[in-house]
Design a protein around this nucleic acid. Structure first.
Lengths: 204, 204
DNA sequence: GAAGAAAACGGATGATCCATCCGTTTCTGG
DNA sequence: CCAGAAACGGATGGATCATCCGTTTTCTTC
């Protein structure tokens, strides 16, 4: 931690700053690529191993991603952007409850089909500034969705915005525990658990 | 894994078999003691470090607990036994729904106050045979509680027994994510999330 | 309570994993 | 094309892991 490892910048979820040099950008992409594969197959991420697989030096990996979590965040960036788009579309929806519910379906689904998302959405803090920025965007869009639903009187009293992230991540956690054979079995479980929670959340 | 490390036996959740020698029993207890402290303070368990703190050789620790998970299970045994007792009392309860609900409150609470429980209750497989036995007992008692509630028509259709463990662990997961300062804030969150789910689970 | 067999002990050690440092290479702006 | 800056790579010291085997403790039998 004493060596000057520069703060990360310029990747998928573009945090503007001095652009990366051409070779740096290329290497970064290769590294994220490998990271994506490892995350997808559930292999725990070892930065030295990532370097070997990506065909770059160890230091190059550490320079871009000081910890495995940072790499996971970079892998998750794409998924976060997709979620942000979904949230943007949802705020356009007329019916507050439908918009709210449909977005929850999306965010649960996304966590089940992209293994990089759960650790990022559940983590208390982001390792990369770009991740923090994406999470902020998502959070502010989601706040709108939540408040619209709440203002429309569709939510049971006592349910707060601060409860939503834990609940959503808990639902995804439950679905991942479900002993399903096929992957869509897990998606079905996720949908089911979300229905249960939404049912418990709705004003009557 | 080529060295003959004997299968574990004779501890809290007594799996009968040849009794441990006196010194072995003493060391085992010391090790679990230290394990309990580490788990409580949230320190990740390192078997070498446990050996040092317990004042025994490394091999002694590995002989008793081949992996950190095994030690965590030993620490969790006491909590599991308490839950089993609670479940036994619950099956005596007259009202099926009250029995079911009260036990769920207990199991969520227990996971929040004993950090050894979540990994054991969420794990797909047990590392120690004693843990497997305790989990079996718990599971069979819980099955009774669930089926009584279901037969009494108190559960929404589509809710199965297999959904319950994931849901319960998901609730505990959500509560642990809740950004509470004091520890009873987390317990309150757990209670709240359980209410939401129970609300969604109940037949209407 | 002594002696032999069996069980358990301890810690040195080779293997593996981690992450930094710094000499070399690649890039970019002028 | 040149000089300065940025990024590279991999050797390496440090940490962690888990096994092996010579020694000690306990149990059993007489």
């Amino acid at each position: 931690m004493s060596h000057p490892i520069p703060v990360d910048r310029a990747y998928a979820g573009e945090v503007t700053g001095p652009a990366l040099r051409k070779d740096a950008a290329r290497n970064r992409q290769r590294i994220v690529e490998i990271g994506r594969e490892l995350v997808a197959e559930g292999t725990p991420i070892q930065l030295n191993e990532v370097a070997r697989a990506a065909g770059v030096g160890v230091a190059t990996v550490y320079r871009h991603f000081p910890t495995p979590q940072a790499l996971i965040e970079a892998v998750a960036a794409e998924g976060l952007e997709t979620l942000i788009q979904a949230a943007e579309q949802a705020v356009e929806q007329d019916d507050p409850w439908t918009a709210f519910r449909d977005f929850l379906v999306r965010i649960v689904d996304a966590q089940l089909s992209d293994a990089a998302l759960p650790p990022v959405l559940s983590a208390p803090t982001a390792a990369l500034p770009g991740t923090a920025q994406l999470l902020d965007q998502l959070s502010s869009l989601f706040t709108r969705l939540f408040e619209r639903a709440a203002d429309a009187g569709r939510l049971a009293p006592g349910v707060t915005l601060a409860d939503m992230t834990p609940l959503i991540c808990g639902i995804a956690f439950s679905a991942r525990m479900h002993p399903a054979v096929d992957p869509q079995g897990q998606a079905a479980a996720g949908r089911h658990y979300l229905d249960v929670v939404l049912n418990g959340l709705r004003a009557r």
